[in-house]
Amino acid sequence: MKREFKGSAMLNPVPLALITSKDLDTDKTNVFTVGWIGTACTKPPMLSIAIRPERYSYELIKKSGELVVNLPSDNLVKAVDFCGVRSGREIDKIENFNLTLKGSTKISTPYIDECPVALECSVRDIIPLGTHDLFLVDVLCSHVNENIIDEKGKIHFENANLLHYCHGEYYPMVNKSIGSFGYSVRKKKKSKNKPNKKTNKK
């Protein structure tokens, strides 16, 4: 039996990201936490990010037209929470948590080196929705820690200890898979070792 609730954004869990943006007037970098973020398109690579217009970062991103999506690991959970509840108008959150900024290659906004994955983005469009505006951003390039890339070049996000958010709580990503894309319809591989045929000698 299920209980019915009124319409609400009850999509859980969601990924967490630390978004860096640059104040063009002061040249300072700000960071804030978002949970309403997702993949919007693969070609061209595009993300959707919902941001409240009253957020300090909203002003910076709208003016500069760029941002970096930094994916934090579980050791940054305190910074993730803090950056979601404190405003950059009041405190320098980068300095407060001693986060290391590294220069991006496609945009002027730096990324956070402590995050295992960082995606440089430019703003394509801003769509007013209600409490939030939807930012559609193009992913220009990405930076990934070498220690989660295997010898074949595959990125193992499960080894990055990434965080996700679920109904007011933070959880680490598990690193054991229970399936892979398409496994439910994948044909089983035939054994290469065929049994030897017995020959009858007369």
Score class of each variant (00 low, 15 high):
K2L: 11
R3W: 11
G7E: 12
G7H: 10
A9P: 02
M10N: 04
M10E: 08
N12A: 10
P13A: 00
P15W: 00
L16E: 03
L18C: 06
I19V: 13
T20V: 02
K22D: 04
L24K: 11
L24R: 03
D27I: 05
K28R: 15
T29L: 11
T29F: 01
F32K: 00
T33Y: 06
G35Q: 05
I37L: 12
P45Q: 02
M46S: 00
M46F: 06
A50V: 02
A50S: 13
Y56H: 15
S57A: 15
S57D: 06
L60M: 14
I61Q: 04
E66F: 00
L67V: 03
N70R: 01
N70Y: 06
L71P: 05
P72V: 01
S73I: 04
A79G: 10
A79N: 01
D81S: 11
C83N: 07
D92M: 11
F97D: 11
N98E: 09
L99M: 12
L99G: 04
T100G: 05
T100C: 07
L101P: 09
I107W: 00
S108D: 10
P110F: 02
I112G: 02
C115Q: 01
I127Y: 13
P128L: 10
H132E: 04
C141R: 06
S142L: 03
N147Y: 14
N147K: 09
I149P: 01
D150F: 08
E151I: 09
K152Q: 14
K154H: 12
I155R: 05
I155Q: 01
H156R: 07
F157L: 12
N159L: 09
L162Q: 03
L162I: 04
H164N: 12
H164L: 12
G168M: 09
G168L: 12
Y170T: 12
M173Y: 03
K176M: 14
K176H: 15
K176Q: 15
S177T: 13
I178M: 07
G179F: 05
S180A: 11
F181C: 09
S184E: 13
S184F: 03
V185S: 14
K190E: 15
K194S: 11
K198Y: 07
K198W: 13
N200D: 14
